[in-house]
């Protein structure tokens, strides 16, 4: 299978999932809005390109974390909206906990030396 060609993929993939889950926890969004919201909340650290966004969305939908439906965008354009499922909410909680643990661990590890 072809891998999306963008820098730091390995790190990004795990990060991307949790970011998508996070921004969708507030409200259902369509693809472009998700991308913009992620850029916004990470202070433009992560610019998610459609080439990585859509595979991720579809993968998460298949995994049962997201569900999608067609709706109207803020500019009255037809767009596909994604929202979290119960399993998605659970997944978000799990990953958040994990990230918290990792960041605490990393922070303390880096401080020691």
């Amino acid at each position: 299978m072809k891998k999306p060609a963008s820098a730091g993929t390995a790190l990004l993939q795990g990060t991307l999932d949790v970011l998508i889950l996070k921004v969708l926890a507030l409200e259902p969004l369509h693809g472009l809005a998700i991308s913009r919201r992620i850029a916004q909340v990470t202070g433009n650290t992560f610019q998610v390109k459609p080439g990585s966004l859509f595979p991720a969305l579809h993968r998460m939908e298949q995994a049962g974390w997201l569900s999608s439906s067609w709706g109207e965008s803020e500019n009255t354009r037809r767009a596909k909206f994604y929202q979290l499922t119960k399993a998605g909410i659970r997944q978000l909680k799990q990953e958040t906990d994990q990230w918290a643990r990792i960041s605490v661990a990393m922070a303390s590890a880096l401080e020691m030396f």
Binding site: H30, G31, L32, P50, S73, N75, R78, K80
Partner: peptide
């Protein structure tokens, strides 16, 4: 979906 993304 992709078309609407591009348009937006």
């Amino acid at each position: 979906e992709l078309h609407s993304y591009e348009a937006m």
